[in-house]
């Protein structure tokens, strides 16, 4: 796996909500190699560890990153402006969404899990998206997806409720090959259960606290069980996307 660590210029910056930032950075090497589901690890001034952020999409020599302020590091990262430089390590992850294996997919995004699904959709022939957010104020990127059903927990925008009912409706149509999902663990658990019920494969993107992001430190292990063989793969290098059936979401 070829990875790069480069200081990359921020080209464009946009705020999607009060706490969600949208940046384009010039990263030619990473852009050339990036695949849907992969991520980068970003150095944040004043913090020891880098912050992992998914690649939302790629355009020529540039990559797009969409991230939410969750704590101190992402808050500092949110202060960047065009012209600033970000030190970026990537593209990371050997296993992304299998856009080459499947031609059609249902994409399920929960909140800030939505961005990497755009990259996946751009590489799929046929797809539908179900995107869930807490409230209208938290909705991001809805208009950027094709065939999207947007849900809000409080009903202030789109479908009232979480992503599961719209997902089940799509599953009943039985025209898609796979579910690809990214979002909070409870959502992933429910998505995998539905995939099971309708006997369709699922691919889920996992998160874990990371140090190196490149497979060297074993800081980010998760647990999988496939054919009753238990393994402890690294989310950063062996993932971050795993077979929903195999991943143990503890």
């Amino acid at each position: 796996m070829e990875i790069y660590q480069k200081s990359c210029e921020v080209l464009r910056y946009n705020k999607l909500t009060d706490t969600v930032h949208d940046v384009w950075v010039n990263a030619p090497d990473i852009a050339e190699k990036a695949l849907p589901g992969q991520f980068v690890n970003i150095m944040v001034p004043g913090f020891f560890l880098r912050r992992p952020i998914s690649i939302c999409e790629v355009e020529k020599t540039n990559i797009r990153l969409v991230f939410e302020e969750r704590g101190e590091g992402t808050r500092v990262l949110g202060g960047i402006k065009p012209g600033d430089n970000l030190d970026v390590l990537g593209p990371l992850g050997n296993s992304g969404f299998s856009v080459d294996r499947y031609s059609s997919a249902i994409l399920v995004g929960g909140g800030i899990g939505t961005p990497p699904l755009k990259f996946a959709q751009q590489n799929l022939e046929k797809s539908a998206a179900v995107l869930g957010f807490r409230s209208k104020a938290n909705v991001i990127m809805a208009e950027e997806f094709r065939n999207a059903t947007v849900c809000t927990d409080d009903g202030s925008f789109g479908f009232h409720g979480n992503t599961l009912r719209p997902l089940e409706r799509l599953l009943l149509e039985r025209v898609f090959d796979v579910i690809m999902a990214c979002g909070p663990k409870p959502m992933l658990r429910a998505v995998v259960a539905l995939a099971d019920k309708y006997n369709i494969p699922s691919e889920i993107s996992l998160e874990e606290r990371m140090a190196c992001g490149a497979g060297a430190c074993l800081g980010c292990a998760c647990k999988t069980v496939a054919d009753s063989i238990v393994s402890y793969p690294r989310v950063c290098k062996d993932g971050p996307v795993f077979d929903g059936k195999a991943a143990v979401l503890c």
């Binding site: 913090f47 020891f48 560890l49 590091g73 874990e208 606290r209 990371m210 140090a211 430190c217 074993l218 800081g219 980010c220 292990a221 998760c222 238990v230 402890y232 503890c250």
Partner: peptide, 23 residues
């Protein structure tokens, strides 16, 4: 060895804690 349960990494000022558990 399968190592310790996650989270295994915590950040601190100018450093980090790890509990990989010799995986």
């Amino acid at each position: 060895r399968s190592g310790n349960k996650p989270p295994r990494i915590a950040e601190t000022a100018s450093g980090m804690l790890n509990s990989v558990g010799l995986q």
